[in-house]
Amino acid sequence: MNSSSDNPPATARSQVFRARGLTKVYGSGDAEVRALAGVDLDLRAGELVVLLGPSGSGKTTLLNMLGGLDVPTDGELAYRDLDLTHATDPQLTRYRRDSVGFIFQFYNLIPSLTARENVGLITEIARDPMAPEAALEMVGLSPRLDHFPAQLSGGEQQRVAIARAIAKRPEVLLCDEPTGALDVRTGIVVLEAIERVNRELGTLTVIITHNAVMADMADRVIHFSDGRVHHIHENASRARPDSLKW
């Protein structure tokens, strides 16, 4: 079954991010590293995008900028009407708080809070959150609400992280190697959760991975090398996560 069939075609959706000539240089002189070397990119509402590329190709740098964690050295980056290139720290904080959900490779849960509380932490400060229980229900963790991170498996911890990211109903979900620390079976459960959120909530989802297999579940696959977009590939149909094998 093609799960993207009820979504409008990618090109018809509203534009969320617009990047032009995006450049990031770390260091200077001999130590200068050009992490991004002029990236032009548009990302649209509701699409699921996979960023593929070897280490050092610039995909994480791009994700950091999309998430408001880093600012470009040159070029333009806008989230809707917000100019991320020149935003202040409080503006970036508000942007992350209201619009962005992050999922990290190592989950980054607060160890002293239970699953429910890790999600509740965000719903306390978000503008229009869902109930923590509802978010955890979406990732299939209703029976583990009151467990602490140390009492959860890696896959469960990552699903709490997804619930935490989506509970604020973000417009953007940014995932950095979400299955990188997980075995295949658990990884698929996590990908299913991400895919479900994308499908049911219409959240623009950007996934960074080394794993080329995951490209099949995307609407678009953006290949990175040497700090540039090498090419972009559009899938005619998205594969279901449980059909992926690696």
């Binding site: 904080t93 992350r96 708080r97 959900g101 607060i110």
Partner: peptide, 12 residues
């Protein structure tokens, strides 16, 4: 942990 809080939208 604190950096994560900042990333997910907590102010300084």
């Amino acid at each position: 942990e604190l950096a994560t809080l900042r990333v997910i939208g907590f102010s300084q």
